[in-house]
Amino acid sequence: IRCIGVSNRDFVEGMSGGTWVDVVLEHGGCVTVMAQDKPTVDIELVTTTVSNMAEVRSYCYEASISDMASDSRCPTQGEAYLDKQSDTQYVCKRTLVDRGWGNGCGLFGKGSLVTCAKFTCSKKMTGKSIQPENLEYRIMLSVHGSQHSGMIVNDTGYETDENRAKVEVTPNSPRAEATLGGFGSLGLDCEPRTGLDFSDLYYLTMNNKHWLVHKEWFHDIPLPWHAGADTGTPHWNNKEALVEFKDAHAKRQTVVVLGSQEGAVHTALAGALEAEMDGAKGKLFSGHLKCRLKMDKLRLKGVSYSLCTAAFTFTKVPAETLHGTVTVEVQYAGTDGPCKIPVQMAVDMQTLTPVGRLITANPVITESTENSKMMLELDPPFGDSYIVIGVGDKKITHHWHRSGSTIGKAFEATVRGAKRMAVLGDTAWDFGSVGGVFNSLGKGIHQIFGAAFKSLFGGMSWFSQILIGTLLVWLGLNTKNGSISLTCLALGGVMIFLSTAVSA
Rank of each mutant, 00 (worst) to 15 (best):
1 I>K: 00
1 I>E: 04
5 G>H: 04
8 N>V: 03
8 N>G: 03
10 D>A: 02
11 F>G: 03
15 M>E: 04
15 M>C: 04
21 V>D: 02
21 V>E: 02
21 V>Q: 01
23 V>P: 01
25 L>R: 02
26 E>V: 09
30 C>P: 01
30 C>T: 04
32 T>F: 04
32 T>C: 03
38 K>D: 08
42 D>W: 10
43 I>K: 10
43 I>Q: 08
43 I>W: 09
45 L>E: 09
47 T>L: 13
50 V>L: 07
50 V>M: 09
53 M>N: 04
56 V>P: 00
58 S>E: 10
58 S>C: 01
61 Y>T: 14
62 E>H: 08
62 E>K: 12
64 S>C: 03
64 S>W: 03
69 A>L: 14
70 S>L: 09
72 S>H: 08
74 C>S: 08
75 P>M: 11
80 A>Y: 11
80 A>M: 13
81 Y>E: 10
82 L>N: 05
83 D>M: 05
90 Y>S: 08
92 C>V: 04
94 R>P: 00
97 V>A: 11
98 D>M: 12
98 D>C: 07
101 W>V: 03
105 C>D: 07
106 G>Y: 02
108 F>A: 03
109 G>N: 05
113 L>E: 02
114 V>Q: 04
114 V>W: 05
118 K>P: 00
120 T>K: 05
120 T>L: 13
121 C>K: 05
122 S>F: 10
126 T>N: 12
127 G>H: 03
128 K>S: 04
132 P>M: 07
133 E>S: 03
136 E>H: 00
137 Y>Q: 03
137 Y>T: 02
139 I>W: 09
140 M>Q: 00
141 L>T: 02
142 S>E: 05
143 V>I: 08
144 H>E: 10
145 G>V: 08
146 S>D: 00
148 H>F: 14
149 S>W: 15
149 S>Q: 14
152 I>F: 12
153 V>A: 12
153 V>P: 10
154 N>W: 08
155 D>P: 01
156 T>Y: 01
160 T>I: 05
161 D>E: 15
162 E>W: 08
164 R>C: 15
166 K>Y: 00
167 V>D: 05
168 E>W: 11
169 V>L: 15
170 T>P: 04
171 P>S: 13
176 A>F: 10
178 A>R: 02
181 G>V: 07
183 F>N: 10
184 G>A: 05
185 S>V: 09
187 G>E: 09
190 C>N: 09
191 E>G: 11
191 E>R: 05
192 P>D: 05
195 G>I: 10
199 S>L: 07
200 D>Y: 10
201 L>W: 01
201 L>Y: 14
202 Y>V: 15
202 Y>D: 07
204 L>I: 07
204 L>A: 12
205 T>W: 05
205 T>Q: 12
207 N>M: 12
208 N>L: 10
210 H>D: 04
211 W>D: 09
213 V>D: 09
213 V>P: 04
215 K>L: 00
215 K>D: 05
217 W>N: 10
219 H>R: 10
221 I>L: 14
223 L>W: 12
223 L>D: 11
224 P>W: 11
226 H>K: 00
228 G>A: 08
229 A>N: 02
230 D>N: 14
231 T>Y: 04
232 G>H: 05
233 T>H: 13
233 T>Q: 01
236 W>D: 05
237 N>L: 01
239 K>A: 05
242 L>M: 14
242 L>I: 07
243 V>R: 00
244 E>M: 15
246 K>F: 04
246 K>P: 02
247 D>M: 15
247 D>F: 09
248 A>E: 01
249 H>C: 11
253 Q>T: 05
256 V>S: 03
257 V>Y: 06
258 L>V: 04
258 L>A: 13
259 G>T: 06
260 S>D: 10
261 Q>S: 09
261 Q>V: 11
261 Q>A: 08
261 Q>P: 10
261 Q>C: 12
263 G>M: 13
263 G>N: 11
266 H>P: 10
266 H>W: 13
266 H>K: 13
267 T>Y: 06
268 A>G: 03
269 L>E: 08
274 E>M: 14
274 E>P: 08
275 A>C: 00
276 E>Q: 03
278 D>Q: 14
279 G>S: 15
280 A>E: 02
283 K>G: 03
285 F>Y: 12
287 G>P: 00
288 H>L: 03
288 H>Y: 11
290 K>T: 12
294 K>M: 09
295 M>A: 07
296 D>F: 09
296 D>Y: 01
298 L>R: 04
301 K>D: 05
304 S>G: 00
307 L>Q: 11
309 T>Y: 04
311 A>P: 10
316 K>M: 13
319 A>F: 02
320 E>Y: 02
324 G>A: 12
324 G>S: 13
326 V>I: 14
327 T>I: 10
329 E>R: 02
330 V>A: 13
332 Y>R: 03
332 Y>I: 04
333 A>G: 15
334 G>M: 09
337 G>E: 08
340 K>Q: 03
342 P>L: 10
345 M>Y: 04
347 V>W: 13
349 M>E: 15
350 Q>E: 05
350 Q>W: 00
350 Q>V: 08
351 T>N: 14
352 L>H: 15
352 L>Y: 14
354 P>S: 10
355 V>F: 00
357 R>S: 06
357 R>G: 09
358 L>R: 10
360 T>H: 06
362 N>I: 09
363 P>D: 04
363 P>K: 07
364 V>M: 14
364 V>W: 03
368 S>K: 00
370 E>W: 07
370 E>R: 02
372 S>C: 15
373 K>Q: 00
374 M>K: 03
377 E>R: 00
378 L>N: 05
381 P>H: 05
382 F>C: 10
383 G>A: 01
383 G>I: 07
389 I>S: 05
394 K>E: 13
395 K>P: 05
395 K>C: 08
396 I>R: 08
396 I>L: 14
396 I>N: 07
397 T>M: 13
400 W>P: 08
401 H>T: 02
401 H>D: 11
402 R>G: 12
403 S>E: 03
403 S>N: 09
404 G>K: 05
405 S>I: 08
411 F>V: 08
416 R>P: 08
416 R>Y: 10
417 G>V: 05
418 A>L: 02
419 K>T: 10
420 R>G: 09
421 M>P: 05
422 A>T: 09
424 L>R: 05
428 A>R: 01
428 A>P: 07
429 W>D: 06
429 W>L: 06
430 D>N: 15
430 D>K: 06
432 G>Q: 09
433 S>T: 15
434 V>E: 10
434 V>M: 13
437 V>T: 01
437 V>M: 15
438 F>H: 00
439 N>Q: 10
439 N>A: 14
440 S>A: 07
440 S>V: 04
443 K>Q: 14
443 K>R: 14
444 G>I: 12
446 H>K: 09
449 F>C: 13
451 A>T: 14
452 A>W: 11
453 F>D: 06
454 K>Y: 09
455 S>C: 13
455 S>A: 13
457 F>P: 12
458 G>C: 11
464 S>F: 07
467 L>C: 03
468 I>D: 01
470 T>F: 15
471 L>F: 15
472 L>C: 14
473 V>Q: 03
475 L>I: 08
475 L>W: 15
475 L>C: 10
477 L>I: 14
477 L>H: 07
478 N>S: 11
479 T>L: 08
480 K>W: 11
485 S>Q: 09
489 L>K: 01
489 L>G: 02
492 G>N: 10
492 G>H: 11
492 G>V: 00
494 V>W: 12
496 I>W: 11
497 F>H: 13
502 V>F: 10
504 A>T: 13
